[in-house]
Amino acid sequence: MEARLTGIERNEVLHYLGWPGVGLSKELAAAFERCERTLLDTARPRAVWRLFPLLPDGRLEGTGYAPAGESVRELLRECGAVVLMAATLGTEVERLIRRAQLENMGDAVILDACGSAAIENVCDNLCADLADELRPRHLTDRFSPGYGDMPLAEQRELFYVLDVTRRIGVSLSDSGLMLPQKSVTALIGVSDRPQPKRHRGCSSCSMFETCAFRKDGKSCGAL
């Protein structure tokens, strides 16, 4: 199962940038197209995942790791196994955005937003592929450290269990931030029964910490 980047959702990109909904000028529309194309050409998406039986004490079999928090317990209530996953667009995109910040900051912010939309796309594709792979079992939503009451610090556990740095080249800083920045880690419950879409709304969005809409008391309307 290869990590796949199949497209960049323009509306998502516009939302990330705080688009007020006015028309796009000719110059700006061209910039969006240019940036989307560059990002798609540059990204080398990579992903790693692994399936663990879930033990009665909440640990993942073969590891010392038990995902913490009420939200996760609720998510995994009907699950007998858990997939841990990590995905990234690679250092190629990190470098692209950094260089753009020096050469053309206008393009840089668009590329940055395109990167956010692109890594979402990679994760969505991976989840769809996992759903096929694990059929007839069913998957819960994707859930990342920092969502709900799952501590951001669990990122480190995921990193060690999946050997993320060695497998896909993402590193974790002392302060718990991932590099390349356009990277995601998550867990997904695996159940014999169909799983509801539980985690709608802002608290389950990867932009939760940094969303400009939420800060203004609004929502982007995407979830």
Binding site: L17, G18, P20, V22, E27, L28, A31, M105, G106, V109
Partner: peptide, 14 residues
């Protein structure tokens, strides 16, 4: 006034 948004502000500055 939200007549333009971030990329435009930056392009103007550039």
């Amino acid at each position: 006034k939200q007549e333009i948004f971030l990329p435009q502000l930056i392009n103007a500055a550039n």
